[in-house]
Amino acid sequence: MEKLKRHPDYRGQEYVDLGVAIAVVGWLDPLVIGTAVRSGKYEAQDLKKVWHYLARFS
């Protein structure tokens, strides 16, 4: 999570915040993002941008 927080300029602070919000006990991985997508609570395109953060900075 700390790596994401250091790069708000990559896609935008709102996607860093979303990543933090969906993280499970501070952990963010493809399973967590997939669960968030399936929940229907978040826009798929927003979660895609969180995935970009995860792919680039983890």
Rank of each mutant, 00 (worst) to 15 (best):
K5T: 08
W27S: 04
V16D: 02
V24F: 02
E2M: 12
L18N: 04
W27M: 05
Q45T: 13
V25I: 00
L28Q: 09
G19C: 09
I22V: 14
G34V: 03
V20S: 06
V37C: 08
D9E: 15
L54M: 12
G40H: 07
L54V: 12
K5G: 00
P30Y: 05
A44H: 08
Q13Y: 04
W51V: 07
K48N: 09
L54R: 09
G34F: 01
D17P: 02
R11F: 04
I33P: 02
V25W: 04
T35P: 00
R38S: 15
I33C: 06
G40L: 09
V20T: 07
V24T: 11
V24H: 09
V16K: 01
L31N: 12
T35D: 13
A21Q: 15
R11K: 15
V25A: 12
I33S: 01
L47M: 06
P8I: 11
M1T: 11
E14Q: 15
E2H: 14
E43G: 09
L28T: 10
D46H: 11
Y10L: 07
T35E: 15
P8K: 11
A23C: 12
P30Q: 13
S58Q: 14
K48R: 14
A23G: 07
D9G: 10
V37I: 15
G40I: 10
K5V: 13
D17F: 02
V24G: 00
E43R: 11
Y53R: 03
M1N: 08
Y10P: 03
Y42K: 08
W27D: 02
H7P: 05
Y10H: 08
A21V: 03
G34R: 13
D9C: 00
Y53W: 03
V32A: 03
Y15T: 06
L47P: 04
R38F: 09
R56I: 08
G34D: 15
A44E: 14
P30F: 06
V32F: 02
W51I: 02
R6N: 12
S39P: 02
G12Q: 04
R11M: 13
Y42E: 03
V24N: 08
A55Y: 01
G19N: 08
R56D: 02
G19A: 10
H52S: 12
G12M: 06
I33W: 01
A21W: 00
L18A: 08
P8C: 12
F57K: 10
G26W: 07
L31I: 12
Y15E: 03
V50R: 02
K48G: 15
R56G: 00
V32Y: 01
E14T: 11
G40P: 06
G12C: 06
